[in-house]
Simulated scan of single mutants.
Amino acid sequence: MSVAVIPDQAQATPLLSVQGLTKHFPARNGRIVHAVEDVSFDVRRGSTVGLVGESGSGKTTAGRAILRLVEPTAGKALFDGVDLFSLSAREMRTYRQKLQIVFQDPFSSLNPRMRIAAIIGEALDARGFARGKRRADRVAELLALVGLSPDHASRYPHEFSGGQRQRIGIARALAVEPEFIVADEPVSALDVSVQAQVLNLLGELQKRLGLTLLFIAHDLSVVEYLCDEVVVMYLGRVMERGPRRLLYAAPRHPYTKALLATAPVPDPTRRRTRVALHGDIPSPIDPPSGCVFRTRCPEAIAACAGMIPPLDHVGGGHHVACIRHNDKTI
């Protein structure tokens, strides 16, 4: 498998542009679950964007809606200029090869009745990539690519550790040579030492193969290590987004500050100010009026209940959705 070389101009061009993504689910008594509301961000070709937030923030739903694993309610997802949401089911099938996903749980995402060769080879069969010896050679190549032995192809998933299973999941996603991968919390179920190994693997694969990644996580320390840009979500909406270095050096939104305050810092000389968040994330069936974060925000004022703050640009590609922390109020 050759090393991908991405031209500088291509690096500046979004491979994926998500515009106004909204996903609602029906609930009882005619009510609606507002899982994702008006989410917009770009993913540059060859880069990694982190989608971060607590459980219930809508980040996994957003990732799956982009891939049309759940059907979006509104918005656009322009992949290389083509709106994925406007495609028919038949047209979308032609894009499945380019768009893949690595699931969160390495234990339930692999069929326990299938050998590893069949799990990885299933994608090859579906796309007609290889048959017979070529198929076996390709499976062996993919296993080696993710740091496993080709001999593992004859084993079953229960014979592997969680980290090894996630490597198999990554190999399966790479089988059809995708351009874009959604990594849905791929290390959250793993031990800390194993997390680092899988993160290193993803970083190496991205550089070697020229992959574009949407990395979903709840841990900002993980995202800082891997991602070029960060999108912070809360209760279905984007609170803040921007280049990693700006967002970590000077977070503007109170929610981002709170997430950073709880993230572990490997350097003992660095200290972060603790930000207390009281209560639980509200129900997406009945989200708060105005800013959805206001019920837990330590800096909320009365005006926060009266308007949904726009995602304002505050410089350098940094955007913030807060009436107290945008470029108009500082």
Rank of each mutant, 00 (worst) to 15 (best):
K133S: 14
R294N: 13
E204L: 01
V231H: 02
P186W: 04
L143V: 03
R167V: 01
H313P: 11
L148T: 02
A261L: 09
H253D: 10
T48I: 08
Q97H: 10
G317E: 14
L69V: 07
I308R: 09
K23W: 10
D327P: 09
T13W: 06
L259E: 08
P284K: 14
K23C: 10
T269W: 12
L21A: 09
R93N: 13
K328T: 12
S109C: 11
Y156A: 04
H158F: 15
I116K: 03
R44T: 09
A12I: 03
G121Q: 05
Q166L: 03
K76Y: 08
R135T: 11
Q9V: 14
L213W: 01
T256K: 02
P284A: 06
S17F: 08
I181W: 01
Q206E: 02
K257S: 07
D80G: 03
E141D: 14
V198M: 01
V146D: 00
V82R: 03
M114F: 13
D105R: 08
G121R: 00
G315H: 10
R93L: 08
N111G: 15
V232E: 14
P106H: 11
L124S: 00
G279I: 13
K133W: 07
A250W: 08
A276H: 10
A140F: 04
R245P: 07
A276F: 09
V275T: 07
S149P: 11
A136Q: 14
P254K: 03
R155P: 02
K59N: 09
T256D: 09
A153H: 04
T61N: 08
P310L: 01
A263E: 13
G132D: 14
R155G: 00
Q206P: 15
A171R: 00
I323A: 13
D312W: 14
Y255G: 00
V3G: 08
L235M: 04
H253K: 05
Q164P: 00
F160E: 00
R131G: 03
E204C: 01
H253T: 06
L78C: 08
V222D: 03
A136K: 14
Y156I: 02
L69T: 06
V3N: 11
H24Y: 15
I32C: 07
E54M: 06
T48E: 02
H24M: 13
S221E: 03
G163W: 10
A65F: 12
L16S: 04
A126P: 07
L87W: 05
G132L: 14
A77I: 10
V320M: 11
T329K: 03
F160T: 00
K207S: 13
L67K: 00
I330F: 13
Q100F: 12
R138Y: 10
R294Q: 15
Y225R: 06
M307E: 15
A62W: 03
P72F: 11
A261E: 12
